[in-house]
């Protein structure tokens, strides 16, 4: 299953290898750049990119494989697996990673893939919801999103989603914490600049869940949000909170057109 991706990126890897990110700024980043939009991949260290380029080296693939296993495992009082309702994930889940967060009428708000997975578990499988950063949830989210790999991010912000999108946007521009910084100060005004030893990226969401070398593990987008909030000494919001789902919707829209890269590898 991983092999087809490997071949596709091998050529790009050969070209990129040996160049520092600075040398390629404004240059050709292939599928990882759409106009001015650049995936976090293009800001990652060359060695980090090399790990992502090789699915057999990408440690996030272990999480994904676990997710694939869980896909056909029966669970809950209904004794059903995901596969019992959705059959082959390669068909039924294709595109999901590109269009989520999506408006979910029963809840009257947009929800992300993690919340949708738990909704299925609770309602359709009568199973206990998974914890947000659990191995199960990260594995399944990786597996589901992987079925959209290389598809352009394309969320719907119209209709009933608009007010939620607007809230996410307001969050992005709102200063917070003892350091009094908004997302935009680092990721819009200063992408491409070094903040101490870190190269600031555009803070795009297309690679999540991601294997982060600093974490020594796979983490969700909301974990990243909590990290970015905490580093400006601001109280983070909860995993799966409305605030973060709205922000996730806004970020996806900012990065629309970038390829779904999940599960990616970052510094």
């Amino acid at each position: 299953m991983h092999v087809k991706i490997l071949i596709g990126t091998a050529a790009a890897t050969a070209v990129l290898a040996g160049f520092s990110s600075a040398a390629l700024t404004g240059g050709e980043w292939g599928k990882y750049q759409v106009g001015d939009l650049r995936s976090g991949y293009t800001y990652a260290a060359p060695e980090t990119r090399a790990i992502q380029d090789d699915d057999f080296e990408n440690p996030a693939m272990l999480a994904l494989d676990y997710g694939a296993e869980l896909w056909s495992m029966k669970d809950g009082d209904a004794n059903k697996s995901c596969a019992d309702c959705h059959n082959d994930a390669e068909d039924s889940m294709k595109g999901v990673g590109a269009r989520y967060p999506a408006f979910y009428e029963p809840w009257d708000k947009p929800i992300n893939v993690e919340l949708r997975i738990n909704e299925c578990r609770e309602n359709n499988m009568k199973a206990k919801p998974w914890k947000y950063e659990s191995r199960e949830m990260l594995g399944m989210t990786s597996y589901v999103k992987y079925q959209s790999r290389d598809m352009p991010v394309n969320v719907d912000i119209g209709g009933p989603s608009t007010p939620f999108f607007q809230k996410g946007k307001a969050f992005y521009y709102e200063r917070r914490g003892q350091l009094d910084l908004a997302c935009k100060h680092c990721h819009e005004d200063n992408s491409g600049n070094m903040i101490r030893a870190n190269l600031l990226s555009q803070g795009q969401s297309n690679g999540f869940p991601t294997y982060r070398l600093k974490w020594q593990g796979v983490g969700s987008l909301h974990r990243r949000f909590r990290g970015c909030n905490s580093q400006v000494r601001s109280t983070p919001f909860g995993y799966g909170s409305d605030e973060y789902v709205n922000l996730e919707l806004y970020l996806a829209w900012r990065g629309r057109g970038l390829p779904v890269e999940s599960p990616s590898v970052r510094n």
């Binding site: 709102e174 200063r175 917070r176 914490g177 003892q178 350091l179 009094d180 910084l181 100060h185 680092c186 005004d189 200063n190 909030n229 905490s230 000494r233 601001s234 109280t235």
Partner: peptide, 24 residues
Amino acid sequence: TIMPAFYKANGLHRVLKGFEGKSL
């Protein structure tokens, strides 16, 4: 500006517990 105020402790939003009301 992105540069923080180093001598300001109020009018800040959602400051992490333990840092409220304190200047840098």
